[in-house]
Design a binder for these strands. Structure first.
Length: 684
DNA sequence: CTGACCCTTCCCAAG
DNA sequence: GAAGGGTCAG
């Protein structure tokens, strides 16, 4: 497609009638229209970061840069979708071959093309945490480690260690030494398990999330020709949320940026909240050192929040030592009330208050989707969910579990993953473990039979899976189910050709899985509905590999895949963790559970780690800067269900970081007739 | 060998 | 307060 862009063969400013000077402020304009070359944009919360990036893309295209030469890296699918959408609105040019997406999805795209170079095939599976765990457990079993007298770290802990090592660029002993000194005695075995785990992943043609990044870096590092091709392709690279990049992501960017080419990174050090997955603020702080001619742009006008909220934010973050000094200037004018600080009796009262206030605000004309409830940890939303449900307040929640990670979705996917990647031991076993009479041992035997046929590493598909699999000897009890399963697999691959994704899901459900969920789960209907949604989502795909990759890469924040669950007129309040709320904004924000131990998190308080505490404070900063018009900070004074035993809660120490006159303290404690309470006398 | 049941453990955030 | 892990009967 050499597209409409060529209609005007002489690219000229103003061609799209975009008036950059009118639509951007001075600071944004300087960044958007800067000359090619390395650039660092320090953009405070609510300063129009997204706007700056999207206009920059538009500007480049207007200057004659072809979309296919642009790479736009983001942290969430949502952010990438939104930005591309906005660029489309700005420029009358087909941008479908602009590469935009999360680090993981871009890496996935690159790796699908060159997987063979690394010993994988292009149909490799992507492992989620659960898959990783089963794989690593099989590795531990192979390692002959005596866990009797001394406790060996569990799969979860091992994975965290491996991931941290990889994402920070340190080696495993160093991580154990620094963060897990009590496993000192096991270092040798941990390293061994790590090495075998890596080997195993290659063997079963599967990559975990870290591999997607790491192997892309490896590919570019080892293959000069390929590296130069991608460098030439991506003449302009833009990275959003750069403060949250880790070591691997940073080297990836470095490999992609060729000497003179243009890179623009955007970020805000005050919003760095991902150090626990290896994010290193040094990446943004030292950017000017690594790119010698880097221009630094600062965008400090805040368009989002009323001055009262902004003043509180500025004040709250000041307690941190490690930060670029900055003071966001309010662009909006005042007139509204100060943020509310609300002490409640207990979690139930807190939920009651939030629900009550939400309803009142809706009566005042604020739409539900303009309100959000934010919290430190997912489980803190429990009472709110119950209260909203009982009051019929519609809400949407980004839970901890991704759509794809739900057991029934993974079960169905296992069938598809196996036919696509026939080395995928994890999926094969998951699939056959569903049959009654097959346990770990039986599954392993059948897997060995499969490997013995050699079909796992053949390039072509068998015309019929049943021709091969029916010869196997499953346990007697499982025989009937086994046969049924073989015929289901035949439907997924007709004469060597993959069926369409949606019809695969259909075959699996009708062929075997429906019986299983009916018998296994009490919420059969719900689960069946989810699978039907999966089917609908599959309609949008022709290629099964792309479908599976998309499922794995989809995050919780992207919601369920059908995208049609919420009708447009069905507005709802958002319940979200603060991490997932990053980059978003609402008119009204409630930050709940502001007690020591809940937020800041208890472990961090106990550990007395200054850096961790500062990150926690940045998280608080992110939370309150989401609010445009109204902000409510709430906390329960008593937590009867505290398993730590601290019945009486201490208000969050973050609340001491700012002068009390910046908030309005609401007194709503134990009014017996709370439900009838009327806010008529309150300042709102 | 499988699967049910009881007990311990862990409750921080995500692509 | 749930979920994964270990134990033991069938």
């Amino acid at each position: 497609m050499s597209r409409s862009y060529n209609l005007n063969s002489q690219p000229k400013a103003g061609r799209f009638s975009l008036d950059y000077q009118a639509e951007l402020n001075e600071e944004q304009y300087a960044a958007v229209c800067s000359k090619p070359g390395p650039a660092l944009v320090i953009a405070g919360a609510g300063s129009g970061k997204t706007r700056t990036l999207t206009y920059r893309v538009a500007y480049l295209i207007e200057k004659g840069v072809e979309p296919k030469n642009i790479l736009l890296l983001t942290f969430t699918n949502k952010a990438s979708r939104e930005m591309l959408e906005r660029v489309r609105e700005l420029v009358p040019v087909d941008i479908s071959d602009l590469w935009g997406g999360t680090f993981h999805s871009i890496c996935n795209r690159i790796l699908r093309r060159h997987a063979e170079e690394l010993g994988f095939t292009s149909s490799f599976s992507i492992l989620d945490r659960d898959d990783q765990k089963s794989l690593i457990n099989s590795v531990i079993a192979d390692c002959d480690i005596d866990t009797k007298d001394k406790r060996f770290p569990k799969a979860d802990v091992l994975l965290t260690i491996f991931s941290l090592a990889l994402n920070t660029g340190a080696d495993i002993p160093k991580i154990v030494d620094e963060s897990y000194p009590y496993f000192e005695d096991w270092i040798e075995q941990i390293v061994e398990v790590g090495a075998k785990y890596t080997k195993k992943k290659l063997e079963v043609n599967s990559m975990d999330f870290d591999d997607l990044l790491l192997l892309t870096v490896k590919l570019l590092k080892n293959n000069l020709d390929l590296r130069q091709r991608y460098q030439k392709k991506f003449q302009h690279i833009m990275v959003d949320e750069f403060q949250d990049t880790n070591h691997v992501q940073s080297s990836l960017v470095n490999y992609l940026v060729a000497g003179q080419e243009s890179i623009m990174v955007v970020g805000d050090d005050a919003q760095s909240i991902y150090s626990w997955r290896g994010a290193d603020m040094e990446n943004i702080l030292s950017f000017p050192d690594r790119f010698k001619d880097a221009k630094v742009f600062r965008i400090e006008s805040n368009y989002r929040s009323v001055p009262e909220i902004l003043e509180l934010s500025n004040s709250a973050i000041k307690a941190n030592r490690k930060q670029f000094d900055k003071n966001l200037k309010a662009h909006r004018t005042g007139g509204s009330a100060r943020p509310a600080l609300v002490a409640l009796d207990d979690p139930g009262a807190q939920a009651n208050f939030v629900a009550q206030r939400v309803l009142e605000l809706r009566d005042e004309g604020v739409e539900l989707e303009e309100m959000a409830i934010l919290y430190r940890a997912h489980h803190q939303s429990l009472e709110i969910q119950m209260e909203f449900t009982s009051r019929n307040i519609p809400f949407q929640i980004t839970s901890g579990l991704r759509f794809f990670e739900q057991a029934h979705i993974k079960d169905v996917s296992a069938f598809m993953r196996f036919v696509v990647n026939r080395k995928d031991e994890v999926s094969f076993k998951r699939m056959i473990l569903l049959l009654p009479g097959i346990g770990n041992v039986g599954a392993d035997k059948l897997w060995r039979s499969w490997v013995a046929t050699g079909w796992h590493q053949r390039e072509d598909n068998p015309a019929k899976f049943s021709d091969i699999l029916l010869d196997f000897k499953p346990p007697k009890k499982a025989q009937a189910g086994w046969e049924q399963l073989c015929y289901t697999l035949d439907e997924l691959v007709n004469g060597g050709e993959f069926a369409r994704p949606s019809s695969m899901v259909y075959s699996i459900l009708e062929g075997t899985y429906d019986d299983y969920i009916r018998a296994t789960f009490d919420n059969y209907e719900q689960r069946k509905q989810d699978i039907q949604q999966l089917m609908d989502y599959g309609e949008g795909f022709d290629d099964i590999m792309e479908f599976l990759a998309q499922l794995s890469l989809m995050s919780t924040a992207d919601g369920d895949p059908s995208g049609k669950k919420e009708q447009p007129d069905d507005e709802s309040v958002v319940l979200s963790s603060i991490h997932q709320a990053k980059g978003l904004e609402w008119k009204v924000v409630f930050v709940i559970w502001l007690t020591d131990g809940m937020f800041p998190n208890g472990r961090i308080l106990d550990a007395d780690d200054q850096d961790a505490m500062e990150e926690e404070r940045r998280l608080f900063y992110v939370a309150i800067t989401r609010a445009k018009d109204e902000l409510y900070l709430t906390y329960p004074m008593i937590n009867p269900k505290s398993y730590r035993g601290d019945l009486v809660q201490t208000p969050s120490s973050f609340l001491d970081d700012f002068p009390r006159e910046l908030v309005e303290e609401w007194n709503v404690s134990s009014a017996p007739s709370w439900d009838d309470h009327d806010f008529g006398d309150d300042p709102f």
